[in-house]
Amino acid sequence: MRRAVGRAPAASYAGQIIQGAFIAFVAGVLCWFVWLSGSALRDAQYFDGWLLASGMLLQVYYHIRRQTSAMSPKAAQSWRQIHIFVGYVIFALFLSHSNLALPDTGFEWALWSGFLLVTASGILGTYLAWSVPAKLGPDDRTAFERIPIQRSELARQVHILAMSAEKAQLDLALPSAPYQDWIADLYKNVLRSYFQGACNSMAHFFGSQRHLKRIIAEIDSLERYVDKTGQNKLNAMKALVLEKDRLDFAHVHLGLTKLWLFVHVPITYGLVILAVLHVLVVYSYSSGVL
């Protein structure tokens, strides 16, 4: 059928566990340093606050680098890994900085919710970056930007298949069953709209295949009535339908990988402004404690 249910090999699972353990270890070490500074009569919130700010700066630097210069895919991949890693670490620092407590005032709520949204969207993006390729399959190299192009190609192909008639059939003097017409009707009634653009997005979001099954059933139901040529056509059309479904699936999930950034990046901009103000306020009201 359509898509391979991507099962990541055991090695990647192990790698992820090791990665997670390493992130936890680094976060733990940093939190321990924060505790040490607090027990040394420093204000721990200054220490972890600056660690948090440094991490956020590093994250923003990645974004700026992506915006301003063309990185090689390898470099982009490395930076992305660092970005994710630092993101987890600064989340731990955020928990330390906020003392695991809810905010009290409006300004703090803005900071708190901004950071959480950025973090949550980042975690979602990380999940998507792992899950979508897994869902699409290890050999899938579909690019989101090319999906419309590929979709239109498929539409053209299925149009040709559906509307073209065999020459031999035209030469027959005797009337035959209108297989081509049936196929053409199927195309006009079902497949044309299907191939026109992206569809069944919600079904793909939830992983449903009902729509696909319905279309395939339609094709299969006609298949028994047509001759061999028609069956070949229908098989080819079926393949195109599956391909189209795969593209739609990819469109939804690859689109998610683009969409989460519409939360992640803008909120980061606002969060940076709030963080700068936060630092200014903290230092202006500091009672001599550093």
């Binding site: 703090e108 803005a110 606002g270 402004i273 103000l277 903290v282």
Partner: peptide, 29 residues
Amino acid sequence: VAYAAAVVTVICLIGAFIAATGTQFLMPG
């Protein structure tokens, strides 16, 4: 969208400063 979010943030902050009676909203707790 990101630039718009930044502008909105600044506008909201200015509005908060104007609307607030004091600086209580800056209190950490």
